[in-house]
């Protein structure tokens, strides 16, 4: 089995992501706005209740928010746009004809799309929210460094797993799109789930205590929440191993079940168009 076709699929989508430079700048402005609004809100909530022992300190909540904002495009918000188009026009049959493993083919394209979008944005926002914010005297609002060198290395490993997990969830949206012949459903379902369950809306550790175990155990936590917790060195029940273990578990489970679902979908796929 040759890896080349998958690398090509990856390379193509990666380049598409890098193509839109103005979109990157526009995204940066939007992320800074949302980051600023959220940070000010957290700061005044924390300052108004100085006696409350929260699972994240204010500084950690700010760093969490910045990282979360910078990784927004890494979230599985919906299907791969190219697959949405292909499902609508019927061009999806070409993908079926290719002598490649379709899961890996779509997965490498989905992963490249996520990374091509997220990496430039994340690097840019990290520079602005980190060193630049400190330089202009906004150090108290900036992105803090990792808890230690080891947690930085583990967080890097964890975010790699997170990206793979996100691409695997995108695969589920892709299959949904192929089934329903429209990308709209995947966005309607995917965006709210991803935004809430990844911790984008509110850091997962800050939710009421009774839902926190469930929030940690669900697959979306593995995309950004677990890597950020490892980076911050905050408490995960059972330590870093639980975090990485959950990520690997979901990656395996969603891949196996997803491949099964895909086989079933492909066998009874109805194609639109002539």
């Amino acid at each position: 089995m040759s890896l080349r076709p998958y690398l090509t699929a990856f390379g193509l989508q990666w380049k598409i992501g890098l193509r839109y430079r103005i979109a990157v700048v526009a995204g940066l402005v939007a992320q800074m706005w949302f980051g600023a609004v959220t940070l000010m809100a957290y700061a005044s909530v924390y300052h108004a209740a100085p006696d409350v022992q929260a699972p994240l300190s204010l500084r950690q909540a700010m760093t969490y928010t910045w990282i979360q904002q910078s990784l927004f495009t890494l979230l599985p918000l919906g299907c791969l746009p190219a697959i949405g188009d292909a499902a609508r026009t019927g061009a999806i049959v070409y993908d079926l004809l290719r002598p490649v493993d379709m899961w890996n083919w779509w997965l490498s394209a989905s992963l490249a799309r996520l990374l091509g979008n997220a990496v430039p944005r994340a690097v840019l926002l990290a520079c602005v929210a980190g060193p630049l914010a400190i330089l202009v005297g906004l150090g108290a609002w900036s992105l803090a460094g990792p808890a230690s060198l080891i947690s930085a290395a583990l967080a890097l490993l964890s975010i790699t797993l997170g990206a793979l997990l996100s691409a695997t969830i995108v695969m589920w949206w892709n299959i949904l799109t192929a089934r329903t012949l429209s990308p709209l459903g995947s966005y309607a379902v995917g965006t709210p789930l991803a935004v809430l369950l990844s911790g984008m809306l509110l850091p997962l550790p800050l939710y009421p205590d009774w839902v926190r175990p469930f929030l940690l155990a669900q697959p979306f936590a593995g995309i950004t929440d677990i890597p950020i917790r490892i980076y911050l060195g905050t408490f995960i029940p059972g330590g870093v191993a639980t975090g990485l273990g959950l990520q690997i578990f979901w990656l395996t489970a969603l891949t196996l079940l997803g491949r099964l679902w895909m086989r079933q979908t492909v066998n009874r796929l109805e194609v639109q168009g002539a």
């Binding site: 909530v45 300052h47 409350v52």
Partner: peptide, 10 residues
Amino acid sequence: SLFHRFGSIA
């Protein structure tokens, strides 16, 4: 959830 944890919103 913020309200629940901190008792008030600022």
